[in-house]
Simulated scan of single mutants.
Amino acid sequence: MIGRWKSLVIFPIFYTLVNMKQRILLTASLLMTVGSLWGQQQEFVEIAKRLKLPAMQAVHVKNGKQMGYVFGRKHTDSAALISENTIFQAASLTKVITAYTFFKLYDKGLIALDKPLCAYFKYNRLNDDTLGKRITARMVLTHRSGLLNWEGPVGTHAWRNTPLHTQYSPGTRYSYSGEAFYYLQLAMEKVTGKPLKQLVKEEVFEPFGMTWSDMQWNDLTFKDFAYGHYKLDSARSLIKWDYTNGAYTMYTNAVDYTKFVQKALVKGQGLKSKTHQLMISKANEAQKEFNVKHDEDQYVPCALGMRQQINEKGTWLWHTGSNPGFRCFFIANPKTKESLVGFVNAETGMPAFNELMNLFLEKGQTFWAYQWRNGNL
């Protein structure tokens, strides 16, 4: 376990602190001072304790050097500690993976940004909605499809036959939608003849060496995993998604997701240069409230498949995730190549997003990614 973690950093030093209830595994560059590292270790633990989180996992990359932190237990009623390999639900961070996969197909000329998705896939759930036939990939990726987040009991047979209803004319305003990403998934599967699980494996996981990740539950790979929790002393049953939904079913950890953030989003590997810039550039405004514009909306516009944060230190990319029992996030600056990824196995964990940014990222900047709507999209 230590050997694999070691391979991810430059000039690593390992500090391990173990007692009956906690373990911290930290890797860092020799260029960092022991005092600074020890302080960050302790503050990382204090954040988890202060927020009463069962476990937290994070990876910070700055100046080409990577530090990883883990703390806590896989299950509130177990002594089993999480490791750097422990799998968490990625929730809506799945959407960014789906978006990148879309752009791999876009570069191959298989699918377009502004052609209605109905030209690729006839979606039975939109048969009775004329406006829904206008939805394009660009609208999906900027959450301007007009569809609700979810309509019907998501993931069930009944849901797959529940009619969809646009709430406004597609392309005219912002409204976050997982349904739209699933529609995009169906179009991508139709034009390639491959399920999204296979597409992501071929276009993302294998090229980037994300060996601990899958778009749905994998019994062969997932031996080290975290349970979701309502809160510190209240665990949920383990959820094993046995299907792929491009909006929320991915399983991964902070190490693997950092590979994706650094290689795909920061460096643009696998995409044409123009396509990479298209994906990470401002595409549309977001709205804090459905029918009301706020001044702070300008600081968190939509890129294609993720969000931007525009503040005193430049333009960042970010996204959060919320599944039952889990909260997660990433933020990255393509110019400086700095990134931060975090996973928490509790529904009370979203404030950790703000705490970790304040701990690891440079002072003197406004973290609009959290302040806009407390991390909610």
Rank of each mutant, 00 (worst) to 15 (best):
M1V: 09
F11S: 13
P12G: 08
F14Q: 06
N19I: 02
S29A: 10
L30F: 13
L30G: 09
M32A: 14
T33R: 08
S36W: 07
Q41G: 15
I47G: 02
I47M: 06
K49M: 05
K52A: 09
P54E: 06
M56E: 13
V59A: 07
V59P: 02
Q66T: 10
M67P: 04
G68D: 12
G72E: 09
K74D: 11
H75N: 15
T76K: 07
S78M: 10
Q89P: 03
L93M: 04
F102G: 02
L105S: 02
L105T: 12
L105D: 06
D107Y: 14
K108D: 12
L110V: 09
K115W: 02
A119G: 00
L126H: 03
D128N: 10
T130P: 00
K133R: 12
R134Y: 15
L141K: 04
L147P: 07
L147Y: 04
P163H: 10
P170N: 03
P170R: 09
G171K: 00
Y174S: 05
Q185D: 10
L186Q: 10
T192D: 07
L199T: 05
E202Q: 14
E203C: 15
F208R: 06
W212K: 08
D214E: 13
D219I: 02
F225Q: 01
Y227P: 01
H229V: 06
Y230Q: 14
L232A: 10
R236Q: 14
R236H: 15
L238P: 05
I239H: 11
I239L: 09
K240S: 06
W241L: 00
Y243H: 09
A247Q: 04
M250D: 04
N253A: 02
D256H: 05
Y257H: 03
G270S: 06
T275G: 09
M279W: 10
M279H: 02
E285C: 06
K288F: 04
E289C: 02
F290T: 07
K293G: 02
K293H: 13
H294M: 14
H294S: 14
P301D: 07
P301K: 09
L304A: 12
G305K: 04
K313I: 11
K313V: 04
H319K: 01
F329W: 07
I331Y: 04
P334M: 00
E338I: 04
G342L: 08
F343I: 02
F343A: 04
M350W: 13
E355A: 15
L356V: 01
E362M: 06
K363V: 00
K363D: 09
G364S: 00
Q365F: 12
T366P: 01
F367D: 07
W368T: 03
W372T: 08
W372F: 12
